[in-house]
């Protein structure tokens, strides 16, 4: 008997919950992945994706990033004409690309020119919406072009990384983009130019193991996951649980692989100071 009553109550609560959920429009509230609190979306947007309660840095869109980093309306996109092709005829890749292009997501990176407190810079902002921001031909090409443009115009390059690594669907061609971007970064560096690498959550694999780790100055956000192999792969390989805080920005700074950990709200200021010191 009591079981039946319990069942009725549960059902009642469930329908109420459903009704409540249905009455709230999508995306009005966002749950913070760290402190699990529900936060009004507009409030978070205003705060550039930082949780007002616990300070957790959430993932934000490319557009939001340009607002965080660059002067208002100073952004001019470059190299947008480069589009991905399914060169290996990899199963399912073409459909995926068509879907993404339909949604108007333009590749795993947006590149262009912008200003930081008046100082002109070249930038790349990676985009996790495009196959996890993985590095394929187009991404590699855009980065190489960015470095070449930086060399010829003597402009600093700032690349914001967030990526799952090399793009499997392009096989060894995507692997070679690692060498291509690193080689372009080297020529850029030889010419005496400044490359600032901003690494954000999450960056792993071929991107960490190429241009992202090659910045003259490497800046990360607090508590970002940055590594070569993903945590799950390592756990499977060594058959152990990973220690707390493994592969975070703080961990990397302690081991000596990151120059600065900088909160999102301070980033623009910090970048400006660095650019100033380098006489830009």
């Amino acid at each position: 008997m009591s079981g039946k009553i319990q069942h009725i109550i549960q059902n009642f609560l469930k329908t109420r919950k459903e009704r409540f959920q249905a009455s709230v429009p999508d995306n009005l509230f966002i749950q913070c992945p760290s402190c699990k609190k529900m936060i009004y979306k507009k409030k978070i947007d205003k705060n550039h994706g930082i949780c007002p309660d616990c300070g957790y840095h959430m993932r934000i869109s490319n557009h939001q990033w340009t607002e965080v980093l660059f002067d208002h309306q100073s952004v001019q996109n470059l190299f947008e004409e480069y589009k991905t092709v399914d060169v290996l005829e990899f199963p399912g890749y073409k459909q995926k690309l068509d879907q993404l292009y339909e949604k108007n997501v333009n590749e795993g990176i947006a590149t262009g020119r912008a200003r930081i407190d008046g100082i002109p810079v070249l930038f790349g902002i990676m985009n996790t919406d495009f196959i996890l921001g993985s590095m394929g031909s187009v991404l590699g090409e855009r980065i190489a072009l960015l470095f070449e443009k930086g060399t010829s115009q003597r402009l600093p390059v700032i690349i914001l990384s967030r990526s799952g690594g090399a793009r499997m669907q392009e096989g060894a061609v995507s692997l070679m983009q690692m060498t291509k971007t690193a080689a372009a970064a080297k020529r850029f560096s030889n010419a005496g130019n400044l490359f600032i690498s901003l690494i954000t959550n999450p960056t792993t694999g071929g991107v960490t193991a190429s241009f992202a780790m090659l910045g003259d100055i490497i800046i990360t956000e607090p508590n970002a996951l940055i590594g070569f192999a993903g945590p799950r792969v390592i756990e499977q390989t060594i058959k152990q649980k990973l220690p707390e805080g493994f592969q975070t920005s703080e961990f990397l700074q302690e081991k000596g692989f990151v120059d600065l950990i900088c909160e999102r709200n301070q980033l623009k200021d910090t970048l400006h100071k660095i650019l100033k010191i380098h006489q830009y």
Partner: peptide, 12 residues
């Protein structure tokens, strides 16, 4: 350099 620089497939 050019060897690596030229690896990549895309439409422009």
């Amino acid at each position: 350099y050019n060897k690596y620089r030229s690896i990549g497939f895309f439409e422009t």
